[in-house]
Nucleic acid binder design. Structure first.
Length: 462
RNA sequence: GGCCCCGUCGUCUAGCGGUUAGGAUCCAUGGUUUUCAUCCAUGUUACAGGAGUUCGAUUCUCCUCGGGGUCACCA
């Protein structure tokens, strides 16, 4: 069975990059009928927060990503880590190092001055004398000092590291006894049965260290897939400084989960020329072997396109429900079908859609000056009056086509072009140029409101 | 700086020795539209550079250049 995981550290909101690896992991587990584990890596007490964990969960909920089983918290697993630390100590695979932080810093400076690589010199590796007073030791693991470590990566291929280039006896437990990252990930992944690790390739250089832990403990090494980073427009790793990286900000901006997920799945992964993927298709077609080797630059042009695509293809009932979040309640509006049909063709986001709807539904209180100047000349008022009179005479009028017909009657009778009625009427109804078809606007707001707006405009602009 | 990874249109990407280098997005133009948008059509734009290997390289190898990641008692 394929078991994947997403293992964020709760230091902030869920960001775009994390979501993408989470999505990949999720899809791969689902495709294989496996499990997708969510593990909160909260070993750094100073930087973690409960709110951050909740923010991540909230984002998952919005996107419809469900983890399998209970959420695992590393902070609750101290005794497990302690057990393995003791085991390594007993087996002589790890040891106590009494070097102080100051000494370490000093060593590092010397090495830097000599242009050597900075690494622990192993001075306590085989120490059996009397430990210095007043220093709480850290625990270091005995890492191989020579030889080759090969990471079999499903995205990048086999990558080999020379132990002497990158390894030293790294710390697995701090002076206060708490275990460190590279130690606990390996243990957790092994114990939780995670056999396919999909994560950002910023972890690639950590992997040899984790392999050292796997081997010291005799655990099976999982299959790794290191996904290239998402870069900002400067070509650097995407960070919080780059603006909208918080997943929930996309909800606020009016993007749908589908669009965001579809956008993200295509960032660094592809399936031929296909651009649109439903969740089912993603699950069916996703395969980490098709993940790109190179980093991609984050750019929301395509997200906008996808979002409008999904808005166009969302049933109106569903749209009406989604729009409530954006301050638009029209579940009981009798013309909501007409309104939504017109709006979904032009809005790029749900937020935009809501504000467009509000513009239509609200009686204009002011008129765009330039547009008025242009439209209210000649016999514009006369035309409006004519139209108003014809509308007033109608007992029953509901459909856009009926309003359209009425407009046609006016232009035929007065021998003018469509623009002669369209422009002044548009300003009367909406206060400005541009926007939804007038017949639709009138059908949505109804006869009374239409007549009111025409009267308002005539008195304000004649 | 050491180590590691990467390099096809502006962007997301297809390509896996022989293609007029394809699609999408963006942009531009035209058509449709009372307006704006949608929609449709058309168009501009790419194999980082240099050596090899080969009958033939975007594709394989090496070098250069460029970009990125990582080097913590953070995760």
């Amino acid at each position: 069975m394929v078991v994947t995981r997403f293992a964020p550290s709760p230091t902030g909101y869920l960001h775009i990059g994390g979501l993408r690896t989470a999505l990949f992991s999720y899809l791969w587990a689902k495709k294989n009928g496996g499990k997708f584990v969510l593990r909160i890596e909260d070993t750094d007490k100073a930087r973690n927060s409960q709110e951050a964990t909740e923010a991540i969960l909230k984002a998952f909920e919005w996107l419809g990503l469900k983890h399998d089983g209970e959420i695992e918290y590393q902070s609750k697993r101290d005794d497990i880590y302690a057990k393995y630390i003791k085991q390594l100590l007993d087996e002589g695979k790890a040891y106590k190092c009494y070097m102080s932080k100051d000494e370490l810093a000093e060593l590092r400076e010397t090495q830097m001055a000599n242009k050597q690589r900075t690494m622990y010199d192993g001075r306590y590796r085989d120490f059996d004398g009397t430990p210095p007073e007043g220093v709480e030791p850290v625990i270091r693991i005995k890492a191989p000092q020579s030889g080759e470590i090969v990471v079999h990566d499903g995205v990048k291929g086999d990558i080999s590291f020379q132990a002497e280039d990158i390894l030293d006896d790294f710390i697995i437990a701090r002076a206060d006894g708490s275990p460190t990252y590279n130690f606990v990930v390996a243990i957790d992944d092994a114990l939780m049965g995670i056999n396919e690790v999909i994560r950002g390739d910023d972890h690639l250089s950590n992997t040899p260290k984790q392999i050292v832990v796997y081997e010291a403990l005799g655990f099976d090494i999982p299959k790794f897939y290191h996904v290239p980073m998402i870069h900002n427009s400067q070509g650097k790793k995407l960070s919080k400084r780059d603006g909208a990286t918080d997943v929930m900000a996309y909800k606020e901006m009016g993007y749908t989960p589908q669009a965001l997920l579809n956008f993200l799945v295509r960032l660094g992964w592809s399936h031929g020329d296909q651009e649109i993927f439903s969740m089912d298709e993603m699950i069916e077609l996703f395969d980490p072997k098709d993940i790109n080797k190179s980093a991609s630059i984050y750019n929301t042009e395509k997200l906008d396109w996808l979002n409008s695509h999904y808005i166009k293809n969302t049933p109106n009932d569903e749209l009406a429900e989604l729009l409530v979040e954006y301050g638009l309640t029209l579940t009981s509006h009798d013309k909501k079908e007409i309104l939504l049909d017109a709006l979904k063709e032009r809005a790029k986001t749900l937020k935009e859609m809501a504000s467009l709807a509000k513009e239509i539904l609200t009686t204009p209180t002011s008129y765009d000056e330039k547009a008025v100047k242009k439209a209210y000349k000649g016999n514009a008022i006369e035309i409006l009056n004519n139209f108003g009179a014809k509308l007033s005479a109608k007992d029953e009028i509901h459909l856009p086509s009926e309003y359209h017909h009425l407009m046609e009657e006016v232009i035929t009778e007065m021998e003018v072009g469509f623009g002669k009625i369209g422009q002044p009427l548009r300003i009367a109804l909406l206060g400005k140029m541009g926007g939804v078809g007038l017949d639709i606007v009138m059908a949505v707001i109804g006869k009374e409101e239409t007549m009111l707006r025409i009267a308002n405009a005539i008195s304000a602009n004649s």
